[in-house]
Design a binder for these strands. Sequence first.
DNA 1: GCAATGAAAAGTGCATACAGATTCATCGCG
DNA 2: CGCGATGAATCTGTATGCACTTTTCATTGC
Lengths: 277, 277
Amino acid sequence: MLSNPPEEQYGNRRWCLSDIGKLKVTVTLAALFDLWSPERHLYANCEVKQNRPVKQARRREVIRTGTTVEQMVRAIADMIVTGALLPGEKLDEISLASRFEVSRTPVREALRELGAMGLVGREPNRSAVVTNVTETHLHSMFEAMAELEGICARLSAERMTVDERRALELDHRGSMRLVHSGAEEEYAAHNTEFHTRLYRGAHNDHVFEMVTQTRARLAPFRRAQFRLPGRLAKSYEEHDQIVTAIIRADAVAAGQAAYSHVAIVSDASAVFATAGE
Amino acid sequence: MLSNPPEEQYGNRRWCLSDIGKLKVTVTLAALFDLWSPERHLYANCEVKQNRPVKQARRREVIRTGTTVEQMVRAIADMIVTGALLPGEKLDEISLASRFEVSRTPVREALRELGAMGLVGREPNRSAVVTNVTETHLHSMFEAMAELEGICARLSAERMTVDERRALELDHRGSMRLVHSGAEEEYAAHNTEFHTRLYRGAHNDHVFEMVTQTRARLAPFRRAQFRLPGRLAKSYEEHDQIVTAIIRADAVAAGQAAYSHVAIVSDASAVFATAGE
DNA sequence: GCAATGAAAAGTGCATACAGATTCATCGCG
DNA sequence: CGCGATGAATCTGTATGCACTTTTCATTGC
């Protein structure tokens, strides 16, 4: 059963129930609560008025998580970051439109947003292409990533709350199990979580934004890092140094440990990137 | 008079002369050069074939710098950064479309790109709004900016070429004149140039991108910094420390000087930001 | 008079259509 | 057989139109 209408929040805003045949139906929230029939879970006695004839049908669910474009941005970004779409791959608007069952307009907006994020490259009158960076640019991104991680670790050492420090340490200790069992996939997931904790711990929104975006752009190029022999144990050891420094609130040590941690990952991935091409 | 056709560059690509009545006209570059009448500056004997009937007219010049969307992104970003559009101002698509004399489609794409850049905020079914950040977010951006400037100065001290160091120093020394004459506008322009030199001197594309973007987002909130009494001379002095450290290739000193330079600007602007609201 | 209601106005979201650019297959010519 | 020219197919860029949402404002009921 629904609780009382949250009038203070929504006031007299009217909501659209729409798409019932050729009718458009709008209703205030208060009226909606009056009409709600709890035992049957449907609206009873809903007054329907012909407001405007409907010529074009728009297929959409009543509840959606964001607009079509937002959904597509998330979906395509996921595909790029997880490797379902590889660097250099062309993304033509018509195929994407038919794949997602929408028109080209939202596809184009999604591609433009992904372009601004740096995940795809765009040139006039050309298809969008999953970004394939040069080796020097890749190097510059890894270097920037190391700097950013260093900043995050340093600020985390200074600013993390007691709870955050405890959660970081617990999570880190728990990952030792994954190292021993050699669970690469699971360790990769833990690794992402671990670094996200560092980024949040810095308590700086803009740094968080930059580091998150940089990580997304690097993701396609660091996929295989945990396949290298012995990398798992080494990663754990490096995390350990970072955690220890943060618990001790030693900002300088934390920053340096995080910096060299990423620098090492960079070397490992660079091998992979050049080998892969 | 035109030189020889750059065939090696354009090959047999065909170019569209279009929109002549109801005809679509395409020609190769070679043909174009044959048809060119230098003394009259027009095309003679151009063979016109009916290729497709033209129903809709598209008003556009032959030479354009990028697509409509790119132009609009630049134009709107400029207006925001220079203060022609103030934080909180609504940007409705229809007004922008009529102002730029285009349809809403390119306007929407431009707004989406600006949204991804963080210059405007977007919510579903709401007009785009020039970003108006909270005080804590503003603080986080200034802090991030200080870190980024520190990184750039540090890397510049290590990596700048001899020419870059010389140019930086010359430019800096030249600005003393502006300090003495109290030319605020000109000093602001010099200041932008000075910092851009630092960003480039780091020789790291991704850092350059991040710091440039952050600067653009901060621009609306740091406009009045040189109005504060004595700020000009102080700024020059701080620049001097940075330049001296870079010339000496003292990375640590350069980084620290740049960091505190921005931190000081931050304080000055914070006063302005809160006072302005 | 004032809140609730209803409807029009104004604005955003998306689909479709057409203009323009690029790519591809074919043809003609040496 | 190769190579460039040509037209068609395919794709991107932009305009337009309708669906839907929000806002505004006049009207109604109390």
